[in-house]
Simulated scan of single mutants.
Amino acid sequence: MNLTQVLSQISSQGIKLWAEGDELKIRAPKGALTPEIRDLLSQNKLELLQLLQGKTNNIDATSVPLVSVSRDKDLPVSYQQERLWTVDQLMPGMANLNLCIAVRIEGLIDIEILQKSWNEIISRYDILRTNFAFVEGSLVQVVIPSLTNE
């Protein structure tokens, strides 16, 4: 398995890597660091460190493919998502973490076109259709596949 394939597999699991000096640092969702992935990281540690430190020329940022994550299984939450969810559980209904903006639209508005525009934006970005749930004791992202209000 080449370095590009290693990075692709690691990123598809939501695992983040970075270098601090000569140390390879890892942040991963619960259960993502399987024994196979740990072995893969160990076998490629030197090359990964060189890449992260910018000491290698054989792979650049554009050669690492973006990998679509399957929506057939539960998606892990990021650290920031889990933190915000926890704050909401401790202080339910508080709007302190919401960013609000008001826009005044003047003139004639075609409500149907406006609704279609919003629906198109929402259909393009999974995060706008994402809820959170507990599955087997872990907080996960649940992406609603499509809009029902067309």
Rank of each mutant, 00 (worst) to 15 (best):
E47F: 03
L48A: 10
L48P: 00
L48C: 04
Q50F: 08
L51T: 01
L51D: 01
L51H: 01
L51R: 00
L52K: 02
L52A: 04
Q53I: 07
Q53H: 09
Q53A: 08
Q53V: 09
Q53G: 07
G54Y: 02
K55P: 06
K55I: 06
K55D: 11
T56W: 00
T56N: 05
N57E: 06
N57G: 12
N58L: 08
N58Y: 02
N58A: 12
I59N: 01
I59D: 01
A61T: 08
A61V: 10
T62H: 09
T62K: 08
T62N: 09
V64T: 03
V64R: 00
V64Q: 00
V64M: 00
V64N: 01
P65Y: 02
P65Q: 08
P65F: 02
L66F: 11
V67A: 14
V67P: 00
V67M: 11
V67R: 13
V69M: 10
V69E: 06
V69S: 12
V69N: 06
V69R: 13
S70C: 12
S70R: 13
S70N: 11
R71S: 13
R71M: 12
D72P: 06
D72A: 15
D72I: 11
D72E: 15
K73E: 12
K73S: 14
D74H: 09
D74L: 07
D74A: 15
D74Y: 08
L75G: 01
L75H: 03
P76E: 03
S78W: 00
Y79I: 00
Q80N: 10
Q81D: 00
E82N: 11
E82K: 09
E82F: 01
L84H: 03
L84A: 02
L84C: 03
W85N: 02
T86N: 06
V87E: 00
D88V: 04
D88K: 08
L90R: 03
L90H: 04
M91A: 13
M91K: 09
M91Q: 11
M91D: 09
P92T: 05
P92C: 06
G93D: 10
G93M: 14
M94H: 07
A95T: 12
A95I: 10
A95S: 14
N96F: 04
L97Q: 07
L97K: 07
L97G: 09
L97C: 08
N98Q: 11
N98I: 04
N98D: 11
L99T: 10
L99Y: 14
C100P: 06
I101W: 06
I101M: 15
I101H: 09
A102N: 05
A102C: 08
V103L: 15
R104W: 07
R104F: 08
E106N: 12
G107A: 10
G107S: 10
L108Q: 13
L108E: 13
I109R: 05
D110E: 13
D110R: 14
I111E: 10
E112A: 15
E112M: 12
E112L: 12
I113K: 15
